[in-house]
Design a protein around this nucleic acid. Structure first.
Lengths: 170, 170, 170, 170
DNA sequence: TATGAATGAGAGTTCATTCAT
DNA sequence: GATGAATGAACTCTCATTCAT
């Protein structure tokens, strides 16, 4: 059991380190770099995530789940803001996703479900017009994700950009 | 001069092949693949573009210039559509931009200038509200670029997504 | 610690193989050849010596240190002979030094120090005239190094050539 | 005939440029660099010297012939000085010679003959002791060649180094 | 289980040489 | 003859992944 605790702690450390590493150096971040930042040896990284892609997927899933939870008690405006912020944190990982055809289907479906409910509440609250559908909201969330990676992204630009989207949804 | 013609033809072939290759396999597409698709030897690719990044940059610049030209005689709505379509064609290239810190400064500034003028015209035509600034339009164009890479991107989704953005700008 | 032992053994094997390879094929010897001769994979060579030049440098340093040690208990005549012999063994490596601007500063300074002391002892023993300075001795050692690479270098020629130098120093 | 004159001029220009280039960048100097420095295209270089090695050989032969001529009317001391100076000019070329097994046999034999005669005159003049043989003089000339490539080579060091050799020969 | 050295396929890049113009 | 674009074998170096300890 002590070992299992160690293992769990390692897994978490690796995930955190990987997030950092990919955010900093993009998908080009080496597994070795990740290991180093996590304070373990490469072998340990591969024991927990048999493939580099598995690592990427794990990070994505974590991120998407965090967002799904957030979606459950946010307004539409709050949520778009949260997504943009998360994008700034996770930076390149999302980019990396485009690369390999990673299977994040479940997590994405989970998020979509949460967003669907969020959208219903938003419609009820007059935050979104009735004709809006989930898939365009998802597309716009993705869009916001990338807009947030603009090198000129400031809190002011963030505000104005999201305002346009939110205004368009209403 | 005759050789110059051959060289020019090769340069074009390489650019086209590279566009294709990167669109298909992402930035991971091999220089060798590009060469093969262009019907030349690797050395020729490197003679024209001393570095893989130079190739990426060239493609990006071409794309941005094409868009800048387009911006000059389009409405806001038409332009957003065009950008989305270009994004679908160029697929991964834009993603690759995040990867290496490629220097597309000039081309990007050129595009921004064209968009600035487009925005003025749009304001005059009542297509955009007076308070809208160029940088958020640029951010939204980037955003649209990525939204267009959604695997579920259909002409219907395209329409609804862009409609939201355009409505938000008005 | 066990792995450390393996690693050390590999490092030594690589150095030995590289010495051989460079002696045989000159600095043009492939890293792959070195690896093969050492019985390891290329990656291992690069793990130990991140750059081909690092490998060359390492060999040179080893050689210079061996000579510095030798200088400590030799007469002037013995040392010149030893240097010539080392040159025959190491053949091309010394040549390679001219190629890339390799940084062997330290090792060279170390050797110079040893030779300086050797020279003092030689003067005391009447083996060298008092006006001789270290730098010309170093130059002559370099010279002997290359003379020893003459294709016609025999033990007889070796004897007569070194005799001239030694006589000149006395 | 006009063409032949052009060709001859080109040949000379290429040889000069190659000397320069190899002196500056060592044997790593590119044929392209040579061509550029000579003001011709690569193809022209290859027309005159079918192989890079042929170029190296040509330079060496030229150099050796120049020295052979010099040997004909010099004292031993003058000649050693001339050789050292030539070495400084031609720098890396000599190094390059070690690399490829270039066939300079004739030229070398020619030089050896001249040196043999020089040596006879030197013996007659009391500049060299009777027991000295040509091959050690040749070895010492090679040696001087390399000594002259010492980074610390100054006119003072040159004087002291050559003095030792000449004293040893007497 | 963790470690980190070893592996080796693969990628980018160079450059002597060829050849169409 | 000259040009310089094209060729492609060869080389250095990287990095995901494996495995002996």
């Amino acid at each position: 059991m002590a070992l299992r605790a160690d293992a769990a702690r390692n897994r978490a450390a690796i995930l955190a380190a990987a997030s950092e590493a990919f955010a900093q150096h993009g998908p080009k971040a080496t597994t070795e770099q990740v290991a180093q930042q996590a304070g373990v040896a490469v072998g340990t990284v591969f024991r927990h995530f048999p493939t580099k892609d598995d690592l990427l997927i794990a990070i994505m899933k974590e991120s998407l789940e965090r967002l799904a939870t957030l979606a459950n008690d946010s307004t539409l405006a709050e949520f778009f803001g949260a997504v943009a912020d998360e994008a700034v944190r996770t930076r390149m990982v999302v980019t990396a996703l485009g690369d390999s055809r990673l299977d994040i289907g479940d997590a994405l479906r989970g998020l979509t479900d949460s967003v669907r409910q969020l959208l219903e509440r938003a419609k009820a609250a007059g935050e979104a017009r009735p004709t809006v559908q989930v898939d365009e909201v998802m597309a716009l969330l993705t869009a916001a994700t990338y807009a947030a990676q603009q090198s000129s992204w400031t809190s002011d630009l963030r505000h104005r950009t999201l305002a346009v989207i939110l205004r368009g949804l209403r």
